Computed example of a mutant assay.
Amino acid sequence: MAEEVEGKTPERVRLLVDNDTGIDDALALAYLCACDHVEIVAVTSTPGNVTADQVAANNRALLELCGRPQVPVLIGARKPLQIPLVTTEETHGPQGVGYAILPDPGALKSGEAPDAIDFWIDAARENPGELTALLCAPLTNFALALRKEPRLPWMLRKVVIMGGAFYYQGNTTPTAEWNTHVDPHAAAEVYAAYTSAAQQGLDESKLPIVCSLDTTERFEMQPQFVNELALAAGEAEEHVRAVDVEGTRSTTLNPLIRYLSDALRFYFEFHRAYNQGYIAHVHDYFAAGVAAGTLNYEVLPANVDVETDSKLLFGTTVADFRGLWGKPNNARIVSRNDPVQGFAELKEKLARMARNA
């Protein structure tokens, strides 16, 4: 039976965010910064869309733009567990945020910040049952954290993963989703750890909520969203059109609208280049809304595993919804969501923050 969750502004949510920023990661992080009830305890930077150092630079600059410069930005792993790192500048631009330009925050100095993995473990130990982990990147850092502290599933309040594709076409190979394909060994370790935790009696409410392509690609942003956002923020019209010359830049004076417009334009152009239309799948925003407790969705429990041996199916996620493997459920997979409600929520929150930018 599906578990249904109605999105509403809940009690205060404390988040550990792990991302590989990334255009949709940036949109998700900006949204979380705009939520008054959300405390971002830290943002950890995982290599994926771009290198870990570039991810961290993007995160620091965006947090500054969104009025959250005090949030720690940390780096853990700088490569996948067993395979070489493959980045995707063709999808997200050379710096990971499309055409957007932000001031360079400078590199993190050696010793300036603690290791991301140690930080997560210490934070979970000091705040048992209080922290939600939002994982919008390859699962490298989380796998390493589980290696060092196998009790993390009990310590965290909730875990939300953006990754995988089940009864759906992959976006990296015919069957594999990007985050999982970058480090499938890490993803396999994470799901194995939760199988073990379930066998030890972990409550099903603490199993990861998995936002796979099956439902994240329903969050298909149309280019008119940018103009609607600008108008809602009290700004002049901000059109991003399919007929525009590629690489056209925003001229708005509002720094947040300009950033989002230039980032999303690149993403629209990328999707068009791959015959998906002048649209943008904003996967990580949906996962952020699940973690923040503001979006509607339903989940179905399953046991999830990841293929790491087959050349043909490398990085493919497989879900056993019927217990055919004889293993306990180790995840709750989102089976339904509400993009209309989700985009209305996104526009309202970002417009309010942009008015104060």
Rank of each mutant, 00 (worst) to 15 (best):
Y99A: 07
Y99S: 10
Y99D: 09
Y99E: 07
A100V: 12
A100S: 11
I101R: 15
L102W: 07
L102D: 10
P103S: 12
D104M: 05
D104L: 05
D104C: 08
P105Y: 07
P105V: 08
P105F: 08
P105L: 12
P105M: 11
L108P: 10
K109L: 10
G111I: 05
G111Y: 11
E112H: 11
E112F: 09
P114H: 09
I117Y: 08
I117S: 00
I117H: 04
D118T: 05
D118E: 14
D118A: 11
D118I: 03
D118Q: 12
F119R: 05
F119P: 01
W120C: 02
I121V: 07
D122M: 05
D122G: 06
A123K: 09
A123W: 01
A124S: 13
A124V: 05
A124F: 08
R125H: 12
R125P: 06
E126Y: 08
N127W: 01
N127M: 09
P128W: 07
G129K: 13
G129A: 07
E130R: 15
E130P: 04
L131Q: 05
L131G: 05
L131N: 04
T132C: 07
T132D: 05
L134V: 03
L134K: 04
L135E: 07
C136S: 09
A137Q: 06
L139S: 08
T140P: 10
N141C: 09
N141G: 13
N141D: 13
N141V: 02
N141I: 03
F142W: 14
A143D: 02
A143G: 01
L144K: 15
L144E: 14
A145M: 11
A145C: 10
L146H: 01
L146M: 05
L146A: 03
L146G: 01
R147V: 08
R147T: 14
R147Y: 07
E149H: 04
P150F: 06
L152V: 09
W154M: 06
W154G: 02
M155P: 06
M155I: 07
L156Q: 05
R157A: 13
R157S: 12
K158E: 15
K158A: 15
V159N: 04
V160R: 01
V160M: 00
V160G: 02
I161F: 14
G163F: 00
G164I: 00
A165W: 00
F166P: 01
F166M: 15
Y167L: 13
Y167A: 15
Y168G: 00
Q169L: 00
G170E: 00
G170V: 01
G170M: 00
N171M: 01
N171H: 00
T172Y: 14
T173V: 12
T173Q: 04
T173R: 04
T173F: 04
P174F: 02
T175F: 02
T175W: 03
T175P: 00
E177G: 00
E177W: 02
N179F: 02
N179Y: 03
T180S: 08
T180N: 04
H181R: 15
H181Q: 12
H181V: 08
V182Y: 03
V182D: 06
P184A: 03
P184G: 01
H185Y: 09
H185N: 14
H185D: 11
A186H: 08
A186S: 15
A186E: 10
A187E: 03
E189H: 13
E189Q: 14
V190Q: 12
Y191C: 10
Y191F: 15
A192L: 10
A193H: 11
A193G: 10
A193R: 10
Y194G: 10
T195Y: 08
S196N: 15
